[in-house]
Amino acid sequence: MNTHAVELHKVGKRYKYFSLNDISLSLPTGSITGFIGVNGAGKSTTIRILLGLVHQDHGSVQVLGQAMPEQQVLAKREIGYVSEDMRLYPKASLAWHMQFIQSIYPNWDQAYAEQLLKRFDLRAEQKIKGLSHGQRVKASLLLALARRPKLLILDEPTTGLDPVARQEVLTALIEVLADEDRTILFSSHNTLDVEQISDQVVFIDQGSIIEARSKEDLLDAWRRLRVRVAPDQTVAQLPYVLQHQGHGQLQTIITNRYSPELQQTYQQAGLEIQAVELLTLEEIFVASIQARREGKNL
């Protein structure tokens, strides 16, 4: 078994108006990675490269131990992919799709498929064209999950879902990980979903990966400090101040290198620290993007 289900090394792809800049990324086997970026940041291009649908200009791509795109036929047997614009046949029923997938993939697990049908509150005999958006997403997910793929790649799986459907989908995803050989990569704008279920978080912006690490480490490193400063003091020059707000005596500092030592450094510089707060993943994402676009080092 590979310790990493996916390994990208300095992968680049150039288009006329967009380029993916030497991205490196590894997904440990048995983990869930949340892939966050604004529209057009490069999430889908990266995913298409992993699937062998787009060929990189340079760099190496290993998926489940296979070099992509050369060995994509081998790799794809073990990859399940779900995207928002899944093409299902509108006139055929979900049962027809299930049989069709089953005829191609020998790993198909009918008992699991039926369990998911119930869980997702879907009816197999219903035609695809009669399904709501949420039902269609759940149907696509069912078709991918019941194949029991080693790598599950999901492009915006929870976008446009109602709260109940979202929880159903997230639960199904978490349960996949009961099997330690299986790995999930999912892209999302919904940082709340990523915060809930991801082991690893990756931020991508303008074709570059700006953060890729354990979610716990990431949440742990960021803090908002509410401080009181002397009237003539500025906080911008203090170490690791990524953002600061306020002009009076009460100011807020955001840092991405928090430690008790850093807090001491601030106190020694004369700041009176009134509160230390954690940030949500969404706040961290937005602050990271802003800092990078302002030319600051993260």
């Binding site: 048995g30 983990s31 869930i32 929880q167 997230l170 639960t171 978490i174 349960e175 990980l177 009961a178 809930q196 279920i197 991801s198 082991d199 690893q200 354990s214 979610k215 716990e216």
Partner: peptide, 8 residues
């Protein structure tokens, strides 16, 4: 799985 949160 029970809590629907990440393994890590």
């Amino acid at each position: 799985i029970d809590l629907r949160i990440s393994v890590i």
